[in-house]
Simulated scan of single mutants.
Amino acid sequence: MYTPEGDKAREQVNSWIRASGVFDGVLDFDAVWRDPADPTSIRGDLHTGDYLHGNDAGYEALAKSIDLSLFD
Score class of each variant (00 low, 15 high):
1 M>W: 10
1 M>R: 15
2 Y>S: 08
2 Y>H: 11
2 Y>N: 12
2 Y>Q: 10
3 T>K: 06
4 P>V: 15
4 P>C: 15
5 E>G: 14
6 G>T: 07
8 K>S: 15
9 A>M: 15
9 A>V: 14
9 A>F: 14
10 R>H: 09
12 Q>F: 09
14 N>I: 01
15 S>W: 12
15 S>I: 02
15 S>C: 11
16 W>Y: 13
16 W>A: 12
17 I>K: 00
19 A>T: 15
19 A>C: 10
20 S>C: 06
20 S>K: 02
20 S>T: 03
20 S>G: 01
21 G>D: 04
21 G>T: 01
22 V>T: 12
22 V>I: 13
23 F>K: 06
24 D>E: 11
24 D>Y: 03
25 G>H: 08
25 G>Y: 11
28 D>V: 00
28 D>Y: 00
29 F>P: 01
30 D>L: 01
30 D>F: 01
30 D>Y: 01
31 A>V: 00
31 A>L: 03
32 V>N: 00
32 V>C: 00
33 W>V: 05
33 W>L: 04
33 W>S: 07
33 W>Y: 12
34 R>A: 08
35 D>N: 14
35 D>V: 08
36 P>T: 09
36 P>N: 08
37 A>F: 07
37 A>K: 15
38 D>L: 09
38 D>H: 14
38 D>F: 09
38 D>Q: 12
39 P>R: 11
40 T>L: 10
40 T>R: 14
41 S>D: 08
42 I>D: 01
43 R>I: 05
44 G>D: 13
44 G>F: 04
44 G>W: 03
44 G>C: 05
46 L>S: 08
49 G>T: 04
49 G>Q: 01
50 D>N: 05
50 D>V: 01
50 D>Y: 04
53 H>K: 00
53 H>L: 04
55 N>T: 06
56 D>C: 07
58 G>I: 02
58 G>N: 03
59 Y>T: 09
60 E>Y: 09
60 E>I: 06
61 A>S: 08
61 A>Q: 02
63 A>D: 07
63 A>S: 12
64 K>T: 01
64 K>A: 06
65 S>I: 01
65 S>Y: 02
65 S>M: 02
65 S>V: 02
66 I>H: 00
67 D>F: 08
67 D>S: 08
68 L>N: 03
68 L>R: 13
69 S>W: 11
70 L>R: 07
71 F>K: 11
72 D>T: 14
